[in-house]
Computed example of a mutant assay.
Amino acid sequence: MKTVIHTAAAPAAIGTYSQAVRHGDLVFLSGQIPLDPATMEVVDGGIAAQVRRVFDNLSAVCEAAGGGLDNILKLNVFLTDMGDFPVVNEIMGEYFTQPYPARAAVGVAALPRGVVVEMEAVLAANA
């Protein structure tokens, strides 16, 4: 059985998907882009501001699912410029503590709304 997770503290879906879906003890978080949930606009301030907004959005969905960023088992990062990867690493260190989740970083040609970063995750709901 699957349960849909939704929170107004993260951007509403801009397509045919849920913010997250829980199945058993796992929660699958859809990709988050750097949208301000109040305005649904991309945040200003370059890559650092966009990465922080994505982590804030992921955190809000994790909290709605009954967990937090430290309950993330797997994090997938999509970047339009792999040169931004050091910024992701630095900011990730502000949001996560050890043991860190498994992670992949993938360079992509483009992302929705012209953003430079998107992240999706798998969360352990009862960790």
Rank of each mutant, 00 (worst) to 15 (best):
V4M: 13
I5W: 12
T7M: 10
A9P: 13
A9S: 14
A9H: 14
A10V: 12
P11N: 03
P11A: 10
A12R: 12
A13L: 09
A13V: 03
A13R: 03
T16L: 15
Y17V: 03
A20R: 02
A20M: 07
V21Q: 06
V21T: 11
H23G: 04
H23D: 12
L26F: 14
L26R: 14
V27T: 11
I33T: 01
A38K: 11
T39S: 14
T39C: 07
V42E: 07
V43D: 01
I47Q: 01
I47H: 01
Q50R: 05
V51K: 03
V51S: 00
R52T: 12
N57S: 14
A60N: 10
E63R: 11
A65T: 02
G66S: 10
G68D: 13
N71W: 12
K74L: 15
L75V: 09
L75Y: 02
L75G: 10
N76G: 10
N76T: 04
L79C: 00
D81N: 12
D81G: 05
M82N: 11
M82A: 12
G83W: 03
G83Y: 00
G83R: 05
D84N: 04
F85T: 00
F85N: 02
V87G: 00
N89T: 09
E94L: 08
F96K: 05
T97L: 10
T97V: 15
Y100S: 07
Y100I: 04
Y100N: 13
P101K: 13
R103M: 11
V106F: 11
V106T: 15
V108F: 06
A110Q: 14
A110R: 12
A110G: 06
L111M: 09
P112V: 05
M119N: 04
A121P: 10
V122W: 03
L123F: 13
L123P: 07
A124Q: 09
N126K: 11
